[in-house]
Design a protein around this nucleic acid. Structure first.
Lengths: 155, 155
DNA sequence: GGCAATGAGTTCCAACATGCAACCCTCTCG
DNA sequence: CGAGAGGGTTGCATGTTGGAACTCATTGCC
């Protein structure tokens, strides 16, 4: 049976998950954020099978997170670049990195340091409230149906 | 072939992805954050097959994001509760919700409003730098290998 | 001119993973 | 006593992966 598709659920998380809830998509976006642009480079760094890679890149282009740009007409060669939509996934990746650093790092220390050139410090990501700038905790957030929420479905 | 396992890659994102890069895991955590605790409730809300659900809940318990708590000894009944490790995934989900709201919402508006009881406003999540409190943009972040980074592998 | 290399994919196939439905087990309640 | 409720297994038909091999157009090199 086909994998359940959550793209149409009335939940912004479920919708994001339908694009981002995949292994390879997330890793491809990570790589794209690190500057990788070409098919063979993605393949070399991630070790993804070429068929899978082809399929995923195609999906990300379809979804508008990447865009195929021709950088040489003859023979036609192109690269995959992040769109704004794709670039804005980075904060999510950064939040994952922060979580991974906190919970999945052994005694040898973090393998990855993020340096914020804007302020000149090594940093990690913090997720805060847009209104009061305080870090978010589940216990202080309540979810309610918004204008786009239909009848009595999945909250 | 078995799905590629990224749990041991020298990259905090890849490691997080090995737990969070799954459809169901993310949705289960979302539900757990919304207060769902019992097998049948997860099943009813998400429509996950019972076998898959059983497997995923087991995995999340193994990974330490959920914990099985007996709430009645006879017949033995238990519920799944978030651990600290699991609770701290919420910011990632909130960041996904914010992204989904920005890029995957139709004209009917968002289906989900988050209310921050700590400050009393409706909010969305923003991912900022721990040092300067400014929102993160990929172009202002540089990744470098940290102490836990081995020889010449996947950056 | 011939030949290997480069970039970007397809195609094929066997090993897994998903989803659905049906079954199981243990108590409790009417 | 029979019917639920709660929490799962098991079986099976599809689907999805990953690996390796193959394609194809073009360019660099001798």
């Amino acid at each position: 049976m086909r994998r359940t598709d959550t793209a149409d659920w009335p939940c912004t998380i479920a919708r994001s998950v339908s694009v981002l809830g995949d292994h390879w998509n997330l890793l491809l976006l990570r790589q794209a954020c690190l500057g990788t642009r070409r098919f063979d480079d993605f393949q070399a760094v991630l070790g993804t099978g070429r068929n899978i890679l082809s399929q995923r890149l195609g999906r990300l282009v379809e979804e508008g997170l990447l865009r195929k740009v021709e950088y040489q007409p003859n023979p036609p060669r192109h690269e995959y670049r992040l769109t704004d939509k794709g670039r804005e996934v980075y904060p999510i990746l950064a939040a994952m990195a922060a979580w991974g650093e906190r919970w999945l790092t052994g005694p040898e220390g973090t393998p990855l340091i993020l340096h914020h050139t804007a302020c000149g410090h090594d940093m990690h990501a913090v997720v805060v409230c847009s209104e009061c700038d305080q870090p978010i905790d589940v216990r202080e957030v309540r979810a309610a149906p918004g204008p786009g929420f239909p009848g009595g479905e999945t909250p």
